[in-house]
Design a protein around this nucleic acid. Structure first.
Lengths: 232, 232
DNA sequence: AGCGTGTTTTTTATCTGCAATCGCCGCTGA
DNA sequence: TCAGCGGCGATTGCAGATAAAAAACACGCT
């Protein structure tokens, strides 16, 4: 059963003096959730968190409300705020939506990406290959996020990018780190290469197929991992 | 310049006693915005609105914060809350994302829709044809929303449906009612027929193309309308 | 008149407090 | 022993008060 969780690294929250308090809190809590400092299903105690951040409960409540819309927490009336649990069904759904967004993005990117952007992506891709060759999985993982984020930015459609990011965040709530062994990394790199090919050739059809496929392969990979270790 | 707006129909807010106050306020304000009772760019005065609803500013603020995430309002620190203005570029972006979601949905619907759901859609489609023949545009408009919402529900992917709805709401902020003359209605009906054909045949490819195209035609229609009456 | 500046007023940002609700725990009686 | 039931502490829901910021205003100067 969900129990109240107070994060270990209790720091009183830092922010630029101009930045609105509520936003700072929101980002902070968001990070805590995505990093898994508060486990899925865990409860956020208003008083305790407010105390930890040295802010009032009001500010904290406002911040947490916004996280509800982005799907990171669930609010049960009179019960409290809980880090959302993403079911397998929901995770699969998220992958499908994400794949659709990727497809849309792929088409746009192929049409719009500038040479400078393509150069950035290519160079990042090279860095990722290096990380793979060094078998540095966690570095690859971080670079991978950057790569996707850069990719989405190249679509020139901000809403598209922000929705994609939101869904990626939500997906983090479904079991920690599926992406693991280096064989999977290699597949991922090949996918990226195909996407880059499409973009470089400014071929919308090729790019959209490659990007969508990349996400759907991720979904498949998750399913494979799951059936390998069904319950934990 | 944006000026504070106090809606005309100042009703003190009704809700089921169990429903959380903040949610009720949120939905109410959302409706007010989508219905255009508060014009795009208009300012929401916290005190005035709280007064009107007979609630505290705290509750109102919490509610409005959530609307920010869904893109209906913009919050300027220390300045206040404004109904979001959607630029032409943003509207076009929204259409692109929406079209992508529609495509994804189309594929899923063709694969998953039950006979009962197909029957419902078909019957609704017939009702819409009747509304068109009666030249009842506003009725058609309402039915159209129901049709799309039913459609998305058939995808069996809740997140997909909710994102689609969110984007549709956002699009309402870009100039009022583009969908107008009956020639456009006829095109819309033909689109719907094609989508239904795809679904009935359980043909994912056909359905996804038809649904995506339907949205992109809407985008084109908006552009046409705009170039007809460039500035207002 | 136009402009800069100090002052008042309005509005927002945040905090504190009280009331309502929930969950837990121990009691009671079968 | 255990299901039912108050009572009580913990926690959330909501309201109002205070502090801080911005906007509106008014004045005097050029």
């Amino acid at each position: 059963m969900p129990r109240t969780v107070i994060a270990d690294n209790a720091a009183p929250l830092e922010r630029a003096p101009t930045e609105p308090l509520v936003e700072a809190i929101g980002q902070r809590v968001e990070r805590m959730i995505i990093n898994g400092e508060i486990p899925a299903g865990g409860k956020l105690n208003e008083y305790a968190l407010a105390q930890q951040f040295q802010v009032s409960r009001t500010a904290l409540r406002e911040a947490v409300r916004t996280l509800e819309r982005s799907g990171l927490v669930t609010i049960l009336p009179n019960r409290g705020v809980f880090v959302r649990r993403v079911s397998l069904k929901e995770a699969l759904d998220l992958f499908d939506v994400r794949a659709g967004l990727a497809r849309t993005a792929g088409r746009l990117i192929a049409a719009r990406a500038t040479d400078a952007q393509i150069a950035d992506l290519t160079s990042l891709h090279a860095t990722m290959i290096a990380a793979w060759e060094a078998r540095d999985v966690s570095r690859y993982y971080a670079l991978n996020q950057t790569f996707h984020s850069l990719l989405m930015a190249c679509s020139g459609n901000e809403r598209l990018a922000s929705l994609y990011e939101m869904l990626s965040n939500e997906l983090h709530l479904f079991r920690r780190r599926n992406l693991g062994n280096s064989a999977q990394l290699e597949v991922s790199i090949q996918d990226h290469a195909k996407i880059l090919d499409g973009i470089t050739a400014h071929d919308p059809g090729k790019t959209e197929r490659a990007f969508e496929r990349h996400i759907l392969m991720g979904k498949q990979r998750m399913l494979d991992t799951l059936s390998a270790q069904p319950e934990e």
